[in-house]
């Protein structure tokens, strides 16, 4: 898992340095670390990285420069994995981003997640492998505000649903909950039946189906 080339865009000097240190520590090859969206576009054009990690909120307007750049880059470079970091949960952000490239190779994480170093790197690798990473807090808020359809789920099934939505595979979920993969499979099956979602073994499709379901209920 070494040799993944990365371009980092983050306007906070300290966090940018921290991110670079973290990435290099785990064998990522950091090709450029920039501090605004224009520099990000330029860096991607000249360095052709595998992965882009960008802050959503950057100069000059401090609103969603990073996200717009990310969506653009996803259009311009098919196969480019992108992880956006946000200061807070924002649904429209997530929706915009997951609408690109069928939601493959996309991550939406809260900035605070960076400090859980191994999990953060794990999410990055999942995204680079074409997977999806959704911040647990985003999922948590989505799961929390649905009550009617989700009230049919047991507490354990809700936990599993959360992890599914974050982009974990059955194996990964089993390790986290300290249960067998078969048990997870059973829970997932139950969840999909209860929520009337189409069954699929593809982790990625599964995430999107669950997210779409949750988001759809919210609107």
């Amino acid at each position: 898992m070494t040799g993944i080339s990365v371009v980092v865009a983050e306007d906070g000097v300290l966090l940018r340095a921290g991110l670079v240190g973290l990435l290099e520590r785990f064998g990522f090859e950091v090709r450029a670390a920039v501090d605004d969206a224009d520099a990000l576009r330029a860096a991607v054009a000249s360095h052709d990285p595998d992965l882009v990690i960008t802050d959503i909120r950057m100069p000059p307007t401090h609103t969603d420069e990073g996200l717009r750049a990310a969506v653009e880059l996803r259009g311009a470079y098919p196969g480019l994995a992108v992880v956006v970091l946000s200061q807070y949960v924002q649904h429209s952000y997530a929706a915009d981003l997951f609408g690109t490239g069928e939601g493959r190779g996309v991550g939406y994480l809260l900035k605070d997640r960076v400090v859980d170093v191994e999990e953060f790197v794990d999410s990055l690798r999942r995204v680079c492998a074409g997977g999806t990473a959704v911040d647990p807090q985003v999922v948590g808020q989505l799961v929390r505000r649905q009550d009617d359809p989700l009230s049919a789920l047991s507490a354990r099934e809700r936990d599993v649903l959360g992890l599914v939505a974050e982009g974990h595979s059955n194996g990964s979920i089993a390790r986290r909950l300290f249960v067998t993969e078969a048990t997870v499979g059973k829970h997932v099956g139950n969840i999909f039946v209860k929520l009337r979602l189409p069954q699929t073994d593809d982790t990625n499709r599964r995430v999107l189906a669950v997210l779409a379901h949750l988001a759809g209920q919210g609107g």
Partner: peptide, 16 residues
């Protein structure tokens, strides 16, 4: 906040 995030990140790295 920036400093704290950076500090926490360093602690996370040191743990490794």
């Amino acid at each position: 906040q920036q400093r704290l995030v950076s500090l926490t990140l360093q602690l996370g790295l040191a743990r490794l």
